[in-house]
């Protein structure tokens, strides 16, 4: 791939990424990337199909960290071109990926692009109002199930008292069973010791 012309790069990308309509990409092209190929991609980028542009950007997630650092410059140049794309999906994705080659993290401050910014900020602002109205701790993150009490409190604060639906007037069967089992347990433990 080292000496191919732009048109070949573009054809190669379409063959690799343009076939299915599914935008999920496995990153199979990553093994064939190098600095030279990336420079070619930058040049032909504006003429690619939208689908191919998106998948190319998404394949960045599959580039190993050491290559990300090595190709930082080339990747950022592609992103610079992509940010100016007339298709908003491409521009938005490139904006989110802007920081990825240098830091390994996504950019969550989508504020530089005039066409995209209002869509993003309006959505966030409207939803933020709803989020703030949330009753406390209805849906906790999954890891909370594992946490000791003090660790849990450090993450989500104190849980509100649950609604009381009735009073307990008689011990349920399971409570009687528990006492019974504990007795059996201590018998079994002393039997094991004896034997």
């Amino acid at each position: 791939m080292a000496n191919v012309r732009d048109s070949d790069t573009s054809l190669w990308l379409h063959n690799k990424l343009g076939i299915s309509n599914d935008s999920w990409t496995g990153g199979s092209i990553c093994s064939q990337l190098n600095a030279e190929v990336l420079r070619n991609i930058k040049d032909c980028f504006p003429d690619l199909q939208t689908q191919v542009k998106l998948k190319l950007l998404l394949s960045f997630f599959h580039i190993p960290r050491r290559n990300l650092e090595e190709w930082k410059l080339e990747l950022e140049q592609i992103l610079d071109v992509a940010v100016a794309d007339s298709e908003l999906w491409v521009a938005m994705l490139a904006e989110a990926l802007k920081t990825y080659p240098s830091t390994g993290s996504l950019n969550t401050e989508i504020s530089d692009l005039d066409e995209v910014r209002p869509i993003f900020t309006d959505l966030v602002t409207d939803l933020r109002k709803l989020v703030r109205k949330q009753a406390e701790n209805v849906m906790l993150p999954m890891e909370c199930h594992y946490l000791n009490k003090s660790a849990l409190v450090s993450v989500v604060g104190h849980k509100p008292e649950p609604t009381k639906h009735f009073t307990i007037k008689k011990k349920q069967k399971s409570a009687i069973l528990r006492a019974d089992l504990l007795q059996k347990s201590s018998d079994a433990a002393s039997n094991l010791k004896k034997s």
Binding site: W24, L54, V124, L127, R128
Partner: peptide
């Protein structure tokens, strides 16, 4: 539905 919708939505949800 797609990886582009996934990345975009996760960024939004992450901010929230």
């Amino acid at each position: 539905h797609g990886q582009h919708t996934y990345v975009y939505s996760q960024v939004i949800i992450h901010v929230l």
